[in-house]
Structures are given as C-alpha cells and as structure tokens.
Amino acid sequence: MNPALQPANPQTSNPIQAANLVKFVALAILLGAIGLAYVFVKNQQFVLAEQIRKTERQIRDVQSRNEVLVAKVTELSSRPMLQKRVSEKFIAVVAITGDKIARLTPPATAVADGVMRTAFNSESAQ
C-alpha cells in the first residue's frame, strides 16, 4: 500500500498546518486593521466636518458682527448724526483758517485787492 494513502497517525503527525494558519491569521489581522482604519478615518472625517461646521459658523458670526459694526460706524459718522452731535455740543467744529491750508497749487488771488476769499475763512481769521 502506498504510504501516502495510509491514514496519518495522530500521535506522529500535526493536523494543523501552521503555514496556512499564519496566512489566514495575517489576512484576518490585515482585514481587521483595514476595517478599523476605515472606521478611524471615517470618524476623523466626521470630527473634521464638525470642526468645519463650527468654524464656518464662527466666521459667519464674525462677519455678521463686523457688518453690524460697519453699519453702526457708518451711521455714527453720517452727516445727519454728526450734525446732531454738533448741535448737541458733543463735538465741536473748528474752522480751519486760511493760513493753515496747505495747497499743492497756490490759489490765484482776486484781481482788485489780491485777497483770497471763498476758500479763505474770514470769520475765523479775525
């Protein structure tokens, strides 16, 4: 009888084939690791997405607060508001005298008396 066809003796032979077992275990670990990595990456994506959402909200809030402030600054520096503040004497307007005005091109003087007028504040010069 061919020895290869003889049934193995449980006491002299190993029924577990180690090489195959290692292969299967390695494959299982690899698949497991891939699965875990997938879960980890997916989780990271959710965490980052949440951060993006929060950051976007913060940016929107800052922009909206900025717009509110810009609108307030515009309103406070508008002519009617400044006029009101002047009339309430919260701010004072000081006329600039003619000698304090620096000009890039010297103004032509009037023909008759050589006195600057229109842009020259005669009241404040007195």
């Binding site: 103004p107 032509a108 009037a110 023909v111 008759a112 008396d113 007028r117 229109t118 842009a119």
Partner: peptide
C-alpha cells in the same frame, strides 16, 4: 453756490 465754491475749493476770479 457760495458754499459749494468753498467745498470745491474754487479759486475766486472777481473782486469782492
């Protein structure tokens, strides 16, 4: 016109 001339810094050309 007088106030606008001040605003635009127009140069007077006529005697007062």
């Amino acid at each position: 016109a007088e106030r606008s001339a001040r605003h635009l810094d127009l140069v007077p050309t006529q005697p007062a």
